[in-house]
Amino acid sequence: MQPNSSQSHNLNIATLVSVGKHPQSGRVRRADQDSRAVELGLRLTADNPAGLTVLHAGDPAEPSLRSYAGMGLAAIKVLQLDPAADAVAPLGEQLQQCGADIVLTGVRAESGEGSGMLPYQLAEKLGWPIVPRVADIVAVQEGVAEVLQALPRGQRRAIKVRLPFIASIDTAAPAARQSAFGPAQRAEMRVSVIPAETDTVRQSWDEAVAKKRPKRLKVIKAKTAAERFKAATAKSQSEGGRIMKQEAVDEQAQAILDLLIEEGVLR
């Protein structure tokens, strides 16, 4: 699935990593999706290791950064920010400066705000397209990337995107390679201290541990194995909505806009 060397040779990939949190112990770790993003970055730049920049905004002494480095990174670029600062603006500037073709992130962070908004905000700031929940980047040819997007129940959607773009990496992407202690210790933390605006909105929030919503007990109606199999594998039937393939582009766009207004997304 890896693109061949001639295509990827000059690819410039930036992977953004955050501080993960283990679901059982609550201990800091490399975040699952972010480390898959690093893995994908390493695979895409296998022939050109200098093409991968791993970027973190936060504390350069953060121990979990070492476990990303243990995947075989020579260095991690750290934008040292005040913990209360908003990371979007400095990250955006940094990405523009380093001339990234593809920016890989997780879908959402495992600790902190974890809103999943960062890739969207970056895309908005940079004016780049975003492809959410990517499972793999199959090939990059002549400035266009072939991307597989992860859909529920193991389905994939093939998408072509023009560079540069932002991709958030889904848990369906290849698992991260083992983090080794030696390289982790040797990796360089390239720190740049960045003044950034304080995230004032966030300051007024109270933080609490997220709890899973209680689930409604599932009553199994299926009587036979075939029915159970069907229930487990069937596509979830979408309710309502319309499929518009033949209509004019304007009409399609108007339908989307109407829906967004109806749902209160746009006012």
Partner: peptide, 13 residues
């Protein structure tokens, strides 16, 4: 193999 190469096989990692 484990601490430098990160290549503990199968379920090792």
């Amino acid at each position: 193999l484990t601490m430098e190469k990160g290549s503990t096989p199968n379920k090792g990692a």
